[in-house]
Write a protein that binds this DNA or RNA. Structure first.
Lengths: 339, 339
DNA sequence: ATCATTCATGAAAACCTTTACATCATTGCA
DNA sequence: TGCAATGATGTAAAGGTTTTCATGAATGAT
């Protein structure tokens, strides 16, 4: 350990000729200390290069000023942009962020809980859509640490949630297609398992109902949100021979799959088919045709979630149990007028 | 603070009828304790739900088992994939990772150093390409904490480095173009500032020299690695009217810009121009034409860097001061035979 | 002048571990 | 049997803060 011994609060106290209590106060509650003493302390700190030992402080105060972020896939671009918002807000308030990549592995989820139970983290941001395995079981219910769910809500547990308004966004997206004259609109990416997909499907249905368009079940295709599932879904439509004039895809990754499939079949996009995505991930503007989609305010989502969590940590009752941010329609080239 | 008071080592000791020292040993050095006592302790731990307080332990042991990762842009896809490797390896060895988004802001970099100086992190992974502002100045040189640079080497400081072999990768990429019959090959993305760009340009030059092709300075264009810079570079070539048959781009983002520009001018790719990238970021396979590129072993880079850092922390001399991993040629559709 | 407040400071406890050292019992060997 | 060596456990110190409570000085009011 090359790290030579660091100055402690005692060194500062000695140099300033005061007690350690005074030094501590001079740092944390400057008004409670006489001007002159404060000056001496400040100088002593500068001279010794003192910086307070976070471990000792955390031990004493029983809080670490750390937030644990649990995500199934840290590499996911949708995640990493929200992370920026989370980190920005946390660091602004003096908190650090610890990240845990769970890969949906129960063992890893449980393992990460040690950060909470050992006081290494004060709160939790959850991207997983469920309580970490090991929580909420065996009556430990009451002990849940402060936490906020992002992106995927947590069913059957009242965990505050921050995310985009999927229902409303999907409705707007579908209405945009309708406004362009489309009436046979497919929904690609139905899923019983994922809440997000379900909400987007609801929005889609709502828009169609609102326009008096009846739903053709053959135009609703399952998918898990991957590019591959989008490709497969498009292929399936050709097999079934029930074709839409527009595809509303549950997310951009899926939309990309649809585009790849249609391009491979040498259709002229968007003249022959319109495609609408959801998310606005980075490459959506680069695909050909560039993707018309609903943009998630990712940075803002991260900020809002962290704000909410910090409120919780401060002991305040959260303003609201759920914050839904609006998605914004981004018009590019993949949707065009029909008829 | 709903968190009811947690069990301490004393509670366990009392329940097991032993001293706290014995409990500590039973946990950390099980062999040093009699079988029977160990059993009693284990049971007491289970009964109390005890988990050791990381703060107290860290305070005492003067190490936090945390690694701080400093990156200019946490949202960057190239970063986030390496992060997965870093995190995987760290968590395997019982370390947590703390992330700091510096945005190249000196103030933020300095701020993050408090994690190091306050013992909240034992080591540092650096993506920034330079020592954090506030380090290495004023003779504090000797105090540098254990750290490893990733992606961007740190000039003028012997910081161990892990990254892809940019020179060799660029050479292989360029040779691939040459092998396809290209002789007028542009290099897009020269930069005086970025070491990575410089190395890739060197590899490019080496390959041309090796094939006895003289370099046309008009085919070497500046760029900062963004998609926009790629677009601008392509446009510039048309203005200059010195056209290549193939573009070797310093990275995939740049290549994408070139493709966008050429597509906009309605060239038939790859028939009229070949494009080669570097990095293999996620959307490279989805662009039209899909991008032939050099794939960075991102996950492996993360793992190797973390391994190296943990070795350093364990006090071992690192095997090597620099680990260069090979980039792999990924052949897709953007490069085709010329002539 | 007296007394109650207020203000600035200090002493010491508490936060929860790990570990050096001491103690005592047991074992092994001559 | 006697003594050294080994093994298991306990006591107490140390790690560096924050904060309660006590103390004493200074201020203000009567």
């Amino acid at each position: 350990m090359q790290h030579q011994k660091l100055a402690t609060i005692e060194d500062v106290a000695a140099l300033a000729g005061v007690s350690i209590a005074t030094v501590s106060r001079a740092i944390n509650e400057p008004t409670k200390v006489a001007d002159e003493t404060r000056r001496k302390v400040t100088e002593a700190i500068a001279r010794t290069g003192y910086t307070t030992n976070a471990m000792a402080r955390s031990l004493r105060m029983r809080r670490s000023n750390m937030i644990l972020i649990l995500a199934p896939d840290v590499g996911d671009p949708n995640f990493s942009n929200i992370l920026v918002g989370l980190e920005t807000e946390a660091s602004k308030r003096g908190y650090g962020v610890l990240i845990g990549n769970t890969q949906n592995d129960p063992a890893r989820e449980t393992d990460y809980l040690r950060f909470i139970s050992s006081n290494q983290a004060d709160g939790l941001i959850l991207f997983t859509g469920h309580l970490p395995y090991g929580f909420g079981q065996d009556g430990t219910e009451g002990r849940l640490p402060p936490m906020v769910a992002v992106n995927e809500p947590v069913p059957n547990a009242d965990v505050p949630y921050v995310g985009v308004d999927n229902f409303e966004g999907a409705r707007i997206a579908t209405e945009h297609l309708i406004s362009q004259g489309h009436r046979r609109i497919a929904f690609v990416g139905r899923s019983g398992a994922r809440e997000v997909n379900r909400l987007r499907e609801e929005g889609y249905r709502k828009a169609l109902a609102g326009a008096g368009i009846s739903i053709d079940p053959r135009l609703i295709i399952d998918g898990d949100g991957t590019t591959e599932s989008g490709r497969a879904a498009a292929e399936l439509m050709f097999v079934r021979d029930a074709l839409p004039t527009a595809f509303f895809c549950v997310n951009d990754a899926t939309a990309l799959g649809v585009i790849i499939s249609l391009n491979a079949r040498h259709y002229d996009l968007p003249r022959q088919f319109s495609i609408m995505g959801f998310d606005d991930i980075s490459f959506s503007s680069f695909v050909t045709p560039s993707l018309t989609t609903m943009k998630q305010p990712r940075h803002r989502i991260g900020e809002a979630a962290m704000e909410l969590l910090l409120e919780l940590l401060a002991g305040e009752k959260p303003h609201e149990q759920q914050i839904l941010l609006r998605a914004e329609l981004i018009v590019r080239n993949s949707v065009t007028r029909f008829g």
